[in-house]
Design a binder for these strands. Structure first.
Lengths: 342, 342
DNA sequence: GTGCGCAATGCAAGCGCTTACATTGACGGC
DNA sequence: GCCGTCAATGTAAGCGCTTGCATTGCGCAC
């Protein structure tokens, strides 16, 4: 027994396998990547050697040589709530069907971090990237184009964007909800929203509320706005802030279900009855919307379908590089007990 | 203007930067990795070239040459609920402090998938790996050891395991809860749990319940068990199943808060009053535990601290390779309204 | 002025893999 | 029996980077 061909020291390489199997590295490589090019007998020898050595290919070397990673990256604002997790899960499942691995990073809603992570993903050789929302420094899109990395943007729909989008119309969805709210007699409106600054979903939804108010002839000033990060406790805190104001709003439209559930809990804690004293609405229709008490009026977003479509589109782009048309995901109003007439 | 030194075609490489800056590739590399080895004037030239070219280093090439990726991998059972997400978030934050990137994969609670993903992470050159729970094929641990990739296991505590763990004592935590439940007079017990088959957290917690029953002289048969995947709807379905049995349990101890919230919602839907007709307990103490109505009796797990400690430990292992001692994360009982006397 | 030490830089050998191209040899048609 | 064909395999040139070692040239002590 020699000292170097067996399981001593270094982790085994392609060359080790080739040596053991008595073939060239090229043949081993072919066994791994396109087995049908190799005759049965040879393949068997190679497979035995692989097993015996416990060989695992070095991904980085492979990526370097092949200039392809079969990897797609996604950057989401946060992993901490179910909203993105669910869409991402089906995104991942769909990718998996095509043998593509998903790399996830979360930006904590910070554009600087996001930018850094985009660079990281690119330099890791992601064949494509999924981003949430369109709003970001144009330089990033240039960078991506220059690096030849296709991008799909999800969670928003904009057929005129310079990158394909898979998502819903945040403006119209929220406007539809606001229309309903206003039609039920609400006039003193309020909203708890993520900062619309760097967040086009939030700003579009806000626009939706304003548009609805305008149509109903309600002055803009009738909407009180509190910004909050997404979280149950944050929703509660935001509600308290709203209640401090001179006129108490009759309804609070929350940027998502998590905020809404927090707001409801806090309202109840403060002795208010939802919806009699104050109505609350959410956005997303995640599971807690249904089990909240009172159950949450919200906008249903088919996250899974969105994730799946985004994956398909990205795979197409990676493979064929032909342009893809943006896909509109339809949302729907779900009216439940947390909303009542004013 | 020549055709190849500027921003045409290919993405720029180290050599391009070196050419533009009029230095060697080694110098450029040093500028990027240990700037203090390079004199100011040279560094400036290089930085200008980098900017001008929009150069981004090729991670794979770097990893191949340097045999280090500054990357740590984590495989969690699911991204779909907040339980792991939160621990992972602080894990990531802590890693970020040391300039380490996190790669996340989710195994959907499937051991075969997990194994595959471990191989993927290793072949991607992860410097270390975080795993949830100890229970898995010993071969995997051997593989990891052979590949020289340090591992930390979280969510469980076992000082005798062959790998360091950062977690809590699932057995004792659940036993403490069961002790409380039983001390309140409950005798007809039930539990909704993940399949304890491949899940040591679940099996330990189950053992905890049995241990408590035994101490109280309650026969094992008094515990009805329903297995369910983690999810609100699944919790509801499991509850229905429990209610079909001849004797209705007076308490249902759920494997986590998500199941518990689902069970509560379903019970209420069926016209039962919680806790008067049936008590419900959870595990984890995530945010919804507090806002559920009635609020959930559960076991508080400091997920953030666990994530942070795991990160520190893994970084130590990667750097120094000295053995680390397992860390016990203390849990605590949180008694809220969902549990009452039998 | 000479020589030494040392900081700054360059040279070039890989890292482990893929793949275009070259080589081999078995087989069948003539 | 010869040769063309083609499938199976081998050869070797990179992929873009890091890094040990060699080289350069500067400042200083003498």
């Amino acid at each position: 027994m020699t000292t170097d061909d067996n399981n001593m020291g270094r982790t085994p390489t392609l060359a080790d396998v080739a040596g053991l199997a008595g073939v060239s590295t090229a043949t081993v490589s072919r066994c791994l990547n396109s087995p049908d090019q190799v005759v049965e007998r040879t393949r068997k020898k190679v497979e035995d050697a692989v097993l015996k050595l416990g060989y695992a290919p070095n991904f980085n070397a492979r990526a370097l040589a092949a200039k392809r990673t079969n990897t797609i990256g996604a950057i989401i604002p946060t992993m901490e709530n179910a909203i993105f997790a669910r869409g991402l899960q089906s995104f991942q499942e769909e990718l998996g069907c095509s043998g593509v691995t998903l790399l996830v990073a979360s930006s904590s809603y910070r554009t600087d971090l996001e930018e850094e992570q985009i660079r990281t993903l690119v330099s890791r050789g992601a064949d494509g990237i999924l981003l949430i929302g369109l709003h970001r420094d144009p330089k990033i899109y240039e960078f991506l184009k220059r690096q030849n990395v296709p991008v799909v943007v999800a969670w928003v729909f904009d057929p005129n964007a310079k990158v394909p989008t898979v998502g819903f119309d945040n403006f119209s969805a929220m406007k539809a909800l606001a229309d309903r709210v206003i039609s039920m007699g609400h006039r003193r409106l309020s909203t708890i929203t993520a900062s619309p600054q760097d967040n086009d979903r939030a700003s579009e939804r806000l626009r939706g509320i304003y548009a609805s108010m305008m149509e109903a002839g309600i002055p803009k000033t009738e909407l009180s706005i509190v910004e909050a990060e997404y979280g149950i406790d944050e929703g509660g805190a935001a509600l308290e802030q709203l209640l401090c104001q001179t006129v108490r709003p009759s309804v609070v439209m929350c940027g998502n279900d998590v905020l809404a559930v927090g707001a409801i809990a806090k309202a109840q804690e403060l002795g208010l009855c939802v919806p009699d004293d104050i109505s609350v609405t959410g956005f997303d229709d995640i599971e807690i919307a249904k089990i909240s008490s009172p159950a949450l009026t919200t906008v249903h977003v088919p996250h899974r379908r969105m994730g799946k479509e985004a994956a398909k589109m990205l795979i197409n782009l990676v493979n064929a590089a032909k342009n893809q048309n943006s896909i509109l995901i339809e949302t729907s109003l779900v009216v439940r007990a947390s909303l009542s007439g004013a």
